[in-house]
Design a protein around this nucleic acid. Structure first.
Lengths: 244, 244
DNA sequence: CGGACTATTGAGACTCCTCAACTAACGTGG
DNA sequence: CCACGTTAGTTGAGGAGTCTCAATAGTCCG
């Protein structure tokens, strides 16, 4: 994975394993976990309409309310999708990881602002090219539809998180969401690529409340913070209890 | 399950104007309001795969975690989509109105419970038939994709509502959402088909908090409640201010 | 090593939740 | 038509929790 220049796919695709899309499919009944949606052939078709892009950390990919020309599929890295409210608060709608999709528009404009948290490698696909591809390849479109349904479920889960009253419970639920992304590190160690402030904006809490909730989880021996960007779960039992 | 009259479409379609789907499309730039997504020809194709169903008020259409066999498009009436949490609370994910879509599944099972609030007339479409139709008619699939993206935006908006701290502001935002459905009654009168308890479960508030917030809005002369199921906005200026 | 940013900790104010009692509305059956 | 019971909604008082403001400590980067 050492291709760094921005080049058109098609002639020398970096890998047939990208771009990848992951979700829990609507229809299937075999297995309940997330699976890869696209076939090799579908990925190859997508690569032909896509460009590989590299973004440094903290780069704004696009701003809310600007004309939407592309959608993005993350190959590597972490992105936050947020919106600044009238009262000065910032609401993070979602954290996005590898094999996630972002950049869906409304009335031709982006609704959220997308900003990288880590360095990001992503596939950019023009909306016109994608729409055309959807018409030619209904199966690809169906996989995108499944992905978006899955994103919708995550958004509903997010509103359940925000609806909770206790900060500790909310934080635990966020950690559980991040845990699913942290498979490479093992089941007990969870990577926290984002800042405490980002976590607060996602959870609908103040920065201080996140800090205090972290401390409480640690004092109770449920988790252990290793630096600012990693957590280890010590007591799975009680962790599941507070996250329930 | 209370089954009412179930008749096949196709032979005697009630109208070519149904089933209808409304959303703010992703791609278009002309106009920012919601529009009808389907063409007459597309509706006719859908009707062939659909059955018209009638549900009395308070009927459970399907329960969460049961096998998902159909999706529904509302022709008339109001539905709530909710989920009961472990702590005994109930979280309403969305209120659904005419030309809305519901019944999208995950891993072959419904994620929420759907229950009618008023009597409902809806088109039921089997998932297999719909998937097959999507393959044959990519344009229909594209319209469904647009609709689901729009639903996703509404879910994000919902989490913004729940994230607010003040009950009055949350209630005002719900009223604004319902206002968009209340066009037949005019711009100042808003229909409230659901109970206060439903509103509380949607807003993440207690029933009492909704009651008090209603009272406050009324005492301040911003709105006027006409019976239990109707509101009239008296001061648009201040109403917009609290909902902002 | 210095500086700016991020994060932690503490004290008081504010808001909503819980519990409880009361009132109103609705539907049923006599 | 009315009485009744059930459900839905209102109002009040006290407690739990987070937010705000403020100051301190820690971290990252040049």
């Amino acid at each position: 994975m050492s291709t760094q220049s921005v080049r058109r796919g098609g002639t020398a695709a970096p890998s047939v394993r990208e771009p990848a899309l992951v979700a829990i499919p609507s229809m299937k009944t075999a297995g309940t976990g997330p699976v890869e949606l696209l076939s090799d052939a579908q990925r190859q078709l997508l690569v032909r309409s896509a460009a590989v892009r590299h973004f440094p950390a903290r780069t704004i990919v696009y701003r809310a309310d600007t004309p939407a020309e592309s959608v993005f599929v993350i190959a590597e890295g972490v992105v936050k999708s947020y919106r600044d409210l009238a009262n000065g608060r910032r609401r993070i709608a979602a954290f996005l990881f590898a094999r996630d999709l972002f950049g869906l528009a409304e009335a031709g404009h982006y609704v959220n602002t997308a900003q990288t948290i880590t360095p990001v490698r992503a596939y950019e696909i023009g909306v016109d090219a994608l729409t055309e591809l959807f018409r030619r390849e209904p199966d690809i479109q169906l996989q995108f539809l499944c992905k978006i349904v899955h994103v919708l479920r995550e958004a509903q889960q997010h509103s359940i998180i925000i609806g909770r009253r206790d900060a500790v419970g909310r934080l635990a639920m966020l950690l559980r969401v991040l845990q699913k992304q942290a498979l490479p590190r093992g089941r007990s160690d969870i990577a926290l690529p984002m800042s405490r402030s980002d976590m607060a904006n996602y959870l609908g809490l103040s920065l201080e409340a996140v800090s205090r909730a972290s401390r409480r989880l640690e004092l109770q021996g449920i988790v252990e913070f290793v630096g600012r960007h990693e957590v280890r779960i010590l007591d799975r039992q009680r962790f599941a209890a507070v996250a329930a």
